[in-house]
Amino acid sequence: MAQAAIPQEHKWWSGGKSPFNVSYGKLMMWYFLMSDTFTFGAFLISYGTIRFSQEYWPNPNHVFNSFPFAGHEANLPLAFVSLMTFILIISSVTMVLAVHAGHNMDKKGVQKYMLLTILGGLAFLGCQAWEWTHLLTGAHHVLIDGQIQELNTTVSHNPWGPQVMHNGELVGTPGPVAFGGYFFGITGFHGFHVFSGVVINIIMYIMTTRDVFHNRGHYEMIEKAGLYWHFVDLVWVFVFLCFYLI
């Protein structure tokens, strides 16, 4: 048979091996991430269409301008969310380091960096919890039916509408309700991903500690968890872009 003369390495697609030289597990993870991209994509595109069908959309610099312990008067637009983003990106870096340690079969290193990644994830979730609480409980004066009333930001109303003159003063009016719905919906869905990522990472940490991967001879599971974690991180970049920057 003439075919046998050709070195096997050149024939990636001819069966008997993975054409991409990746395990089926990683392949499944990649396809899952593609699938999840469509889930987020659907949310973000829905958000986009609704947002641009509205006459007015709140300015994120006004909505997201507070910082824990900085007092009510502080005006620090986007400072807190920048911190959150920074934390999440750092946790991606530690994830890379954990994967790297795994390549070197360095159990101690994997443990250390997984722990840091878990902490980063938890810190991000903590920040998100604070931000949500702040929005849900923070009441603002708005003009409704000719009267000044207190309004917080929820999925069914928001105080960030256009400003009008009332008795010689500039006051806010109710803004588009879609704002809260999409904000809480999408950041919540992302937060749920972070949460499940943290759970996965904790399981990976425990398995590492119990020498499961060491005995298996490779730390591929850490790589798969890493793919997921980077994906969640990447999605946040888009969420950040769509809700805070634009």
Binding site: K11, S23, F32
Partner: peptide, 16 residues
């Protein structure tokens, strides 16, 4: 996911 991974990765030798 399983179907895709199996078809891409687990074909027997010679089955391009």
């Amino acid at each position: 996911l399983n179907y895709i991974a199996t078809i891409l990765n687990m074909r027997t030798k010679g089955l391009s």
